[in-house]
């Protein structure tokens, strides 16, 4: 049986950086099955987690000096909470891995410690019937595992989900890196649109105005995908599209003040609308990364946010195209 180190190697750390920045997001997984941490025996606890390698790395690095079994179930390389929601982290899957690994022959007890956030997928009460093991929900965070193992129970703080500044900040790179393809395509389109002039097409204008639009995109990304997550709890409004719109319009105002020299009024207005609309959209997309937005709520705010975003974007493009003709 494979024994996992409780210290991450430089390869593990590079891997973490790669997934956190979106370079290899959907193929960072481990072979499911039973692993050792330290030198476990028949009385050692059994922890369960998903086979997203980032999950396994997080768990094992918190457990230096402990001797226990780690049952890695097949969640197709998806994190625990999302896998629970998608139904891959389920009682049936846990039971399958228990049986497949012959866990019953290795330990004297019949208890599994599950991550609390797998509870949306795992009906713990079913496990006993399916594999003879009793499922208990441990803490939400791997950081709390040592304390949980010492006490044998999780307190209210361990069972409450948090969204601290550091937890928000770590999500930013992946949000941005997933944008670069769209951004490249948009920039190409922007250069073409920016060149349209009364003389049919002006290369000089395409370059000059296209660059301004590309910079405006950077401002929108900064407002919607960096500043919004960082400042989340302090921004006005509960709906994310509004939070993003506020920051976007602010960023837009600063942008046209700093970079607006020599531009026509129509162009300034176009830039302001474009940055506001894009930032609003990016902020709205961040709902998917938070641990407190309900699906019903996101659908509701999208019915208001999307028309605003599509409207501002269309108006902005129209003004931008019209500007050279006035």
């Amino acid at each position: 049986m494979a024994r996992l180190a409780t210290r991450l190697s430089w390869r593990d750390r590079l891997g973490t950086i790669a997934v956190r920045s979106g370079l290899r997001r959907n193929s960072y997984l481990m072979v499911p099955g039973l692993y050792c941490l330290g030198e476990p025996d028949g009385n050692s606890p059994v922890l369960v987690t998903g086979n997203y390698k980032l999950s396994v790395d997080t768990v094992r690095q918190e457990l230096a000096g402990h001797h226990l079994w780690l049952l890695v179930v097949d969640t197709r390389g998806i994190n625990v909470w999302c896998a629970g929601g998608k139904g891959t982290f389920s009682a049936a899957e846990v039971a399958y891995q228990v049986q497949n690994s012959g866990l019953a022959q290795l330990v004297n007890h019949r208890q599994l410690i599950l991550p609390q956030l797998s509870a949306n997928g795992v009906r713990a009460g079913e496990l006993k019937k399916l594999c003879g093991f009793l499922g208990r929900f441990g803490p939400i965070l791997a950081t709390d595992l040592p304390e949980y193992l010492r006490r044998g129970e999780a307190d209210e703080a361990m069972r409450s989900v948090t969204f601290r500044l550091s937890e928000r900040a770590v999500l930013i790179p992946v949000e941005i890196c997933l944008l670069w393809k769209k951004l490249l395509l948009a920039s190409l389109l922007f250069f073409l649109l920016s060149g349209i002039s009364p003389e049919f097409f002006t290369v000089e204008a395409a370059l000059r105005r296209g660059t301004t639009l590309a910079l405006a995109n950077a401002a929108a990304i900064f407002a919607g995908a960096i500043a919004t997550p960082l400042l989340l709890p302090w921004l006005p409004f509960r709906q994310f599209w509004l939070k993003g719109a506020v920051l976007g319009l602010l960023a837009g105002l600063i942008f046209v003040t700093v970079a607006g020299e020599g531009l026509a009024r129509l162009e300034l207005l176009a830039l302001l609308l474009w940055i506001g609309g894009c930032a609003s959209y990016l902020a709205m997309c961040f709902t998917g990364s938070t641990p407190y937005t309900s699906l019903s709520g996101v659908a509701k705010e999208m019915r208001r946010g999307l028309p605003f975003q599509i409207g501002t974007a269309l108006l902005a493009l129209l003004l931008w195209l019209a500007a050279p003709f006035f």
């Binding site: 929601g85 795992v122 997309c285 709902t287």
Partner: peptide, 25 residues
């Protein structure tokens, strides 16, 4: 609407928006 409570209720006393998938745009 994570659904953990409904999933672990032994008598189906809880109902959560069953539209699965994450709350993402």
């Amino acid at each position: 609407e994570c659904g953990a409570c409904a999933r672990n209720c032994p008598v189906e006393a809880l109902f959560v928006n069953p539209d699965d998938g994450c709350g993402c745009a």
